[in-house]
Simulated scan of single mutants.
Amino acid sequence: MALQIVIIGAGITGLSSAIALKKYLPDPKPIITIVETRSAPSTIGGAVNLTPKALRYLDHLGVLEVLHAEGAGAECRAIELFDLYTGSKTADLDFRGRDGDGIGKTGSKKYFAMRVMRKELQRALLKVMGEQEGCELLFGKDVVDIEESTDGVRVGFKGGQSIHGDVLLGCDGIHSCVRSLLIDKDRKPTYTKIATSMAVSNVRRENQLRWDATALISSRRGSFMASYFEKSRKQQYIAVVLETEEVNSREGWKVKGADQAEVKRQILERFDNKAIPELRQLVEDAGDWTLYPVYKLPHGGRWTAPGGRCILLGDAAHAVLVVDIPIEGA
C-alpha cells in the first residue's frame, strides 16, 4: 500500500520535499497532500541566491530545466564584497571553482550560482509538482489541530474537516503551526528588531556598477546587497538590512505613500557615500519597498514528534539569526 504523506506548507521547502519524495522513494510511490493556509501561491519574498549545491539539487529534481526554459534568474559567478567607506573590494564569495568553470563533481555537470526571484522559483516547483501523479495541493486551509498516533497523523482544519496520513512534514516556516501545535509548543520565534527592506530598481545606462552580478556592501550601520536577477541585466534587486523597532506584520508589509520616502531617506542616510555613488541612483529609482521582519528561534528544541511520524523541515525547524548589525554607540 502506498504511503500517505501530508506536507504542511506550499513554499520552497514543502514543494521541493514533495518532488523529491515522489522521485526517490521506491514503488509504490507515495500519495502526497500539500496543505497551504494561503488562498494562492505566496509572492512574498525577494530574490534568492541559489548556490551551486542548490542548483545541483534542483537539476536532479527537474526544476532547473524549467527555470532555464522560462528564462528565469541571472547567473552569479561570485558575490563581491565592498567596503562602503573606501569603495574598494575586500573579497569574493566565489562560485567559479578551481578551474573557473563552476563547482561540481569531476566528470559531471558543474554549476555557478543563480539569483532568482522567489516567486519564479516557486512557479517552477509548482510546475514540476503538478506533473507528478498522486500529488494534491489544498489552498486556504487553516490547521487548528494535529494528533499523532501509532496508526498515523490526523490534521484538523478550521470548519471541522480533517485529513489523515502516515507521515507529516512541517514545512510551514518560522511561525510553524506544526511546531506550535504538536512538536515543540514552548519554542516560540522572537522578533530580532531587524528587518530587510527590499525593492527592485532600474539600472541607468550612465550608472556604471562596479560589480559583475552581485555586491554586498558592509558598513557600521548595516549591510546593502544589490544583484541582477533577470537575464536582461537591466534591473537590480536591492535588499538592505536595518534595525527596525516594529513591523506590523510578521510576514512583511509593503510600504505605501509617504513611508516610501522615509525608507529611502533612512537608507541613504546610512549608505549614501561618494566612494560608491552607484548606490544613490539605485535607491532613488527603487519603488514598492517591502519590509520583511527577521525572526529567530532559540537554539535546541525538538524537530520530531514523540511518535516519529512528524518532522519539521526548513525554517520551521532551525531558523536562526544570520545577520549581525553593530548598534551605534555600543
Rank of each mutant, 00 (worst) to 15 (best):
Gly287Ile: 10
Lys127Asp: 09
Asp83Tyr: 03
Met117Pro: 02
Trp289Gly: 03
Arg280Phe: 00
Glu148Ser: 09
Asp151Glu: 15
Leu126Val: 00
Asp324Leu: 08
Arg221Met: 08
Ile217Glu: 06
Ile44Arg: 15
Asp166Val: 01
Pro298Leu: 10
Gly329Val: 09
Gly301Tyr: 00
Ile217Asn: 09
Gly156Trp: 09
Gly301Met: 00
Ala124His: 04
Val263Tyr: 00
Lys29Pro: 13
Lys254Ile: 12
Glu147Arg: 14
Asp92Val: 02
Ile276Phe: 03
Arg96Val: 08
Leu61Met: 12
Gln4Phe: 00
Ala78Met: 10
Val63Leu: 08
Trp253His: 06
Tyr191Leu: 03
Arg210Thr: 14
Thr304Asp: 03
Thr150Met: 09
Thr244Leu: 01
Val155Tyr: 04
Gly252Glu: 10
Gly257Lys: 11
His175Leu: 01
Glu328Ile: 05
Leu81Ser: 00
Leu313His: 01
Ser180Cys: 02
Arg154Thr: 15
Val294Cys: 04
Ala275Gly: 06
Thr51Glu: 09
Asn273Tyr: 06
Asp151Lys: 15
Val167Gln: 04
Tyr228Arg: 12
Arg56His: 13
Leu279Cys: 03
Ala78Ser: 14
Val128Trp: 04
Thr33Tyr: 03
Glu245Trp: 03
Gly314Ile: 04
Gln235Cys: 08
Val167His: 01
Gly71Leu: 10
Glu36Val: 07
Leu55Met: 14
Leu81Asp: 00
Phe271His: 01
Thr192Pro: 01
Leu121Ala: 05
Ala74Thr: 04
Thr37Trp: 03
Asp92Trp: 03
Ser227Met: 10
Glu243Cys: 02
Lys53Phe: 11
Asp151Gly: 11
Arg280Gln: 11
Glu131Ser: 13
Gly107Met: 06
Leu121Lys: 08
Val200Asn: 12
Val200Met: 11
Glu284Gly: 00
Ser219Asn: 06
Ile174His: 01
Tyr191Pro: 00
Lys256Asp: 13
Cys171Asn: 04
Arg123Asp: 13
Gln122Asp: 05
Val35Pro: 06
Lys53Arg: 12
Arg56Met: 06
His164Tyr: 08
Lys158Arg: 11
Ala319Tyr: 07
Arg205His: 05
Ile276Asn: 00
Ala20Val: 02
Glu65Cys: 01
Val322Gln: 07
Thr290Val: 15
Cys177Val: 15
His299Val: 07
Asp315Ser: 07
Ala316Asp: 01
Arg205Tyr: 05
Glu246Tyr: 13
Leu126Ser: 02
Ala69Asn: 09
Ala72Trp: 12
Met198Ile: 15
Arg77Asp: 08
Gly73Ala: 08
Glu284Met: 10
Val247Ser: 11
Lys29Phe: 06
Leu121Tyr: 07
Pro28Arg: 07
Asn207Trp: 06
Leu268Thr: 03
Met129Gln: 06
Leu242Lys: 13
Glu65Ile: 02
